[in-house]
Design a protein around this nucleic acid. Structure first.
Lengths: 246, 246
DNA sequence: GAAACAAAACTGGTCAACCAATTTTATAAA
DNA sequence: TTTATAAAATTGGTTGACCAGTTTTGTTTC
């Protein structure tokens, strides 16, 4: 329906045809008249019928096959694939390993003294959080984000942000959350961060790339360890391998 | 999706446009590009765009008004996301150079024979398009996307898709569009693609990484050349350097 | 008669041209 | 300057022609 309440042409035709399917004894798998047949029958162009068919396909009434014809479907609604996706933690880590290590390497050539100072402050926040037994998800996230920001490329920043958003939306990761922050792994990861920072400070791209890779590899191994304790829900996520070391 | 898993064309386009609406900060009431604009931009007929618009209208993304245009509708699916981000072409290319070359390198270790065949087909579509002097934005996009898909990591696919979405939404890039597709550069880029494909076929990660880097460097140099003809609007975009060769 | 192959007649897919409603711009009158 | 009105430009709406896969049909061969 358009705003003023009038139906668009294709919508009208689609409703007519939908009624035909539901009220005239069509059953799933039955062949429906072709676009040409209906256009002749209704005295309209085939394009209009085609548009109506698209509606019927989306609404789950029809299954349209090129070269063959259209068939009555008994299906659920087809929906656009744009809603939030749920990525597995290992797939995510694989992607981070590949992308963030490249970004860290690049950042080594663009990083400023001020960036180093800010990273050092973030690291200190992380250290104190662990010391006090407080959760520090935000600082962890910020550390990685600041490295992306050091590239002075907003596209890269956007992508790293997206990686963390995906992680926050990952149902599997949410399930692991408690196990992760409960343990001493975070101390190791803090050391990892320090190594990365040192590499960046020396503007050593190769070393920064490797340090970031190793850090995420450590996270990956931790997750493997944690998810291996008998939770069958992780089947299918376990076999995503690490990317090769840079 | 049809029964055999392949998406119908209009659906592919609809998803592309839906992403554009949800992820690039369109707000209810905002005017959306016209059917003609998008058909030109994508190098496809308006009929295809029109079919995609019908899907978007049904799904509640768009409000289509005859004689006036299409407007973003106030539906649940519209994200409350803030302002539209407009990335500069050189910043985008820098990011692509860094990310896509890494991805190409990784893909060299995961690619299958079937992937190679499909890439070869895409390359052939590109070749024919150039031969006939026809624009084929989709094939170019698809080539890069297929490489990401060869990694079998949906996060990486998502990120490459996002890079192209950002490009489609880049106002600067839109301004350059005509100049780019008017020239013989596309032939060189086709050759670049062939070189990348060869490297992937030999499963040579180092070579694939380099070939992708070089390809995007060529695109970057072309853009530099085109934007250097006296358009003052490109100030500020010109100084984004290439990332170091891998 | 059965199997293999070729051709032709279907099918949906894509396109460019034209139609009709709306918006914008130009012009004239107040 | 403001308003009214008409013309032009821009938008989505509709059409018929042609393209590209499928299915059916006809022919050949054994």
């Amino acid at each position: 329906m358009t705003r003023d309440g009038t139906k668009r042409r294709y919508q009208e035709i689609a409703e007519l045809l939908a009624r035909r399917i539901t009220e005239e004894g069509y059953r799933p798998g039955d062949k429906f008249p072709t676009e040409r047949q209906i256009s002749l029958e209704m005295g309209i162009s085939r394009s209009l019928v085609r548009e109506a068919f698209i509606v019927l396909e989306i609404e789950g009434y029809l299954d349209v096959r090129k070269g063959s014809g259209s068939y009555v479907a008994a299906g659920e609604k087809i929906s656009l694939n744009v809603q939030k996706q749920d990525f597995g933690p290992f797939e995510l880590l694989q992607a981070r390993q590949l992308l963030e290590s490249s970004i860290a390497g690049f950042a080594a050539s663009t990083i400023t003294k001020n960036d180093i100072i800010q990273l050092r402050e973030t690291l200190e926040i992380e250290r104190r959080a662990i010391e006090n037994g407080v959760e520090d998800y935000f600082a962890d996230r910020q550390f990685h984000l600041q490295i992306a920001e050091a590239t002075q490329n907003s596209v890269l920043v956007d992508h790293v942000e997206d990686l963390w958003t995906k992680r926050e939306n990952s149902s599997m990761w949410a399930r692991l959350h408690d196990r992760i922050f409960d343990l001493s792994y975070r101390t190791r990861w803090l050391d990892d961060h320090a190594v990365i920072l040192e590499a960046l400070r020396h503007r050593n791209a190769e070393q920064a790339r490797l340090a970031m890779w190793q850090h995420l590899e450590n996270v990956r191994l931790t997750l493997l360890e944690l998810s291996d304790v008998g939770d069958p829900e992780f089947d299918g996520y376990l076999y995503t391998p690490a990317v090769a070391s840079p």
